[in-house]
């Protein structure tokens, strides 16, 4: 506290001390920040989780007008074998009246198969409409029971609070009746 020669301001080289203090602190902070990364990254999806990121589905047993729900990355994927009327209804919509304008042709690979992620873009509930007899909303597609969003036969948002269309996951037909999602 007293009588300590190194603590006497007159004898200190202020600039050198400042330089040492600032450079040491900077290096220390950078070191801690680097050390934090493994911890933050450890709770990202692990390698085994990423390895499960694709799902194969056999479409051959789905009759026209029916739908099935596949599981992809822990989420439901709606696969609907659309009827001619449903395809027609989806194609006939005037894009100007859509909240999230997108042509039906941009959302499909083969017109009879509509494949979308079955999670409402409002707050993540699963819309109803997969089974015959389910509420399908005013536009014949899906209806979300949580906050009343209506989707059409192309999975596009038409009415209610959801901001976007049901997203189309990446998928590919491996042959006429099999697809790989993801």
């Amino acid at each position: 506290m007293t009588d300590n020669p190194t603590n006497n301001p007159e004898e200190m080289d202020g600039n050198r001390r400042d330089f040492l203090l600032i450079s040491t602190t900077t290096l220390g902070v950078a070191g801690v920040a680097l050390a934090a990364w493994p911890f933050i990254h450890s709770i990202n999806p692990a390698k085994d989780v990423l390895a499960l990121a694709s799902t194969e589905v056999d479409l051959s047993s789905i009759e026209v007008g029916m739908a099935i729900t596949a599981m992809w990355r822990g989420k439901p994927v709606f696969i609907r074998h659309r009827t001619a009327e449903e395809i027609q209804a989806a194609e006939d919509v005037d894009l100007g009246e859509l909240r999230d304008p997108q042509a039906d042709a941009d959302r499909i690979q083969q017109p009879e198969w509509l494949i979308t992620v079955g999670v409402c873009t409002h707050l993540g509930c699963i819309p109803s409409g997969q089974s015959i007899g389910d509420a399908r909303g005013d536009f014949g597609g899906w209806y979300c029971p949580c906050h009343g969003s209506h989707y059409d036969t192309s999975g596009r948002i038409r009415k209610g609070p959801a901001p976007f269309n049901l997203p189309v996951p990446p998928y590919a037909f491996t042959d006429d009746t099999n697809i790989v999602i993801g």
């Binding site: 493994p38 911890f39 450890s42 692990a46 390698k47 989780v49």
Partner: peptide, 27 residues
């Protein structure tokens, strides 16, 4: 956050931490 305290899977969950979890080996 990645360990599972159940006799059936505890061993495998630790191996998974070391092999699959990002930087799990380090932790």
């Amino acid at each position: 956050m990645n360990y599972q305290p159940h006799a059936d899977v505890a061993f495998a969950s630790v191996e998974r931490i070391v092999r699959d979890v990002n930087y799990g080996w380090l932790l």
